[in-house]
Amino acid sequence: MENFSFFPEQASTMATQIDAIYFVLVGLSVIFAVGIAVAVIVFGIRYRKSTSVDRSNPLHESMKLEFAWSFIPFLMAMGIFTWSAFVYYNINTPPTDAVEIYVVGKQWMWQIQHPLGKAELNELHVPINQPVKLIMSSQDVIHSFFVPAFRVKQDVLPGRYTTLWFEATKVGEYHLFCAEYCGTEHSKMTGKVIAMEPQDYQNWLSGGGGGESMVEAGARLFQDNGCASCHIDGEGGRGPNLHGIFGTEVALEGGGTAVVDEAYLRESIYEPGAKVVAGYAPIMPSYQGSISEGGVLQLVAYIKSLSEGQ
């Protein structure tokens, strides 16, 4: 009970923005609540049954009053809404230069992979003063990645990618919670986020136990699972050439197009039949069950790397 506090630490750029709205709301709430309490108490005492006071001409209706006390709160509400809308939009729009880190949630742990290969469990090391974007998916049920000190939270869903970004501002260790109820050990699905000076982060990344980078691991999986036998670098493979496709639009069999993003790549691996590239036969096998979500993330990183510098 030693570190007792009223207010959570502010350790990200988002924290200050959200807290500002929070304080204004607290202020307005106190004004309204106290206003009503005072009115109730004053009227309650003044007009209590045993007193003789002027009770003549009690108002029963007043369009003016009704309008005033609907319209003024309405304007305030819309003001707060607009402000919070901008911040919310910001929360959901990661900067393009963010460091990308991959997260897989599963009952009841967080698996984290850094692009250069460092993997960790229930711990996330991040640099400060640099936007970090998490690309997240779940292996089973819905979880939620929550770092109170950063004021960010995002559900982590099976079957799709969600992203969350933040920019830490203070070196330190912060709670990481799973905020979406996910079964027996939900309350043990916790960990910590360790924010470090960028230099320390680099040192940490290149420290022992790094192993292969995500791209390397993806390349290995690409060979081991026989992807390379169909997807060759050039014309004439049984499957399309995967070089340079990330971020482009592909034409689909039966009309329509799809943008090649992380979710599309994941779907292509787990459910190749869902969107078939125009001009190809639907012969690619599904890897659902044989490649884990973590493996798919490595493949995705690898396929993305094939489009870099093109």
Binding site: I18, Y22, L25, I80, S84, F146, R151
Partner: peptide
């Protein structure tokens, strides 16, 4: 009702939802 406004403000809700 007033604390409902905190949750209706999407940005604040991100922090306080599920808490």
């Amino acid at each position: 009702g007033l604390t409902g406004l905190f949750l209706g403000a999407a940005a604040v809700d991100v922090h306080v939802t599920d808490t």
